[in-house]
């Protein structure tokens, strides 16, 4: 940021001496900038914005028995199905429940782990960072799949707990919601850790030390000094965890019997080829998620603000 300021400052100072030349430079620089950004903007418009308008359009067409939808028609029947179907209500509710549980766990554990990375140094810090970066760079298919031999009734965890005498009979972690939560948590946790860590990394440890010198206990210095400052990181962590977990596909499908919206939508699209209904369901989910994400952000912001006032 500072560098760009000096850049414009330089143009400005030349400008006072030679107004015509600077006007020209100013104009050509913003045109150059636009030209450079044009491919990116065109790409986002064509591959991201336009497709969502197509989705919106398809969501208000009539379903068809021999096509994926009836082109050119207008109908709200798909939305009526989404609003009236008890099955879809259950599916949406389950998706949000899974999303909420995973988000809370992800933010809490992420906060703790990011703090541990921030406080460590040398080889320990590198190893801790590596332990979040490596899963993040591994396909979620593998991350989900690895939980099967670990969590199944004949799996590693049950074996260990049984032989330690902590259990009398194996627990069915998979297929069950517990397995889906564990799998999904493993998918989003690395992002949560890094989002919080990148905010922590810009913080000055001296402030925390000052609070401790003034008599704050360690947990208290964390809650009152560190926490309010990392609220922006926590918001990013919560939003990413929530958006991805509400839309979770692989973990619930492979590790539980519960059907999330994503699993059902894939069935509608690929299995039943009911495009209108899949589109309407996606639109409804996007709206619901937008509302919840806004609420989460507002609540967390207020939380940060309250601490600032205290």
């Amino acid at each position: 940021m500072a560098e760009t300021n000096t850049d414009t400052g330089l143009v400005g100072s030349v400008g006072t001496a030679l107004p015509t030349r600077s006007d020209l430079a100013e104009l050509s620089s913003s045109r150059k900038a636009l030209l450079l950004m044009a491919p990116l903007l065109a790409f986002e418009a064509l591959i991201f914005v336009v497709p969502f308008f197509i989705l919106l359009r398809i969501s208000v067409t009539e379903g068809s028995s021999d096509h994926v939808y009836e082109p050119g028609t207008w109908s709200l029947e798909s939305y009526a199905v989404v609003f009236n179907s008890g099955l879809l209500h259950d599916i949406i509710l389950y998706s949000f429940l899974l999303g909420a549980i995973v988000t809370v766990l992800s933010v809490l554990i992420g906060l703790f782990y990011a703090y541990a990375i921030w406080r460590s140094s040398g080889i320990v810090k590198s190893l801790l960072l590596l332990s979040v970066v490596m899963p993040l760079l591994t396909t979620l298919v593998i991350r989900t799949y690895a939980f099967n031999p670990l969590l199944s009734p004949t799996g590693t965890f049950n074996d260990v707990l049984l032989s330690a005498g902590l259990l009398s009979e194996p627990i069915q972690f998979v297929p069950a919601t517990a397995g889906a939560v564990a799998g999904q948590l493993y998918i989003v946790l690395p992002y949560a850790v890094l989002a919080i860590y990148s905010v922590l990394a810009t913080m000055d440890w001296g402030i925390v030390e000052a609070a401790r010198d003034l008599g704050a206990s360690r947990p208290r210095s964390f809650v009152e000094v560190v926490l309010p400052q990392v609220i922006p990181g926590i918001i990013v962590a919560a939003v990413i965890s929530f958006a991805w977990s509400v839309g979770a596909y692989a973990a619930p499908d492979l590790l539980s019997n519960g059907i999330t919206f994503a699993v059902h939508a894939e069935d509608l699209m690929i299995g039943d080829m009911r495009y209108s209904l899949a589109a309407a369901l996606s639109v409804v989910m996007l709206v619901l998620m937008l509302v919840s994400v806004t609420a989460i952000t507002l609540v967390l912001n207020r939380f940060g603000g309250d601490f600032d006032l205290a």
């Binding site: 760009t4 414009t8 839309g247 596909y249 939508a265 899949a278 994400v293």
Partner: peptide
């Protein structure tokens, strides 16, 4: 090059947005 252009200010959020949409919805849409 041009930090305070109006179009420039929407680039960041626009580019970031696809990451916040569940991949299943992106898959269906695309």
């Amino acid at each position: 090059i041009d930090d305070d252009s109006r179009i420039g200010s929407i680039v960041g959020p626009l580019v970031l947005l696809p990451l916040l949409i569940p991949p299943v919805i992106l898959g269906i849409t695309l």
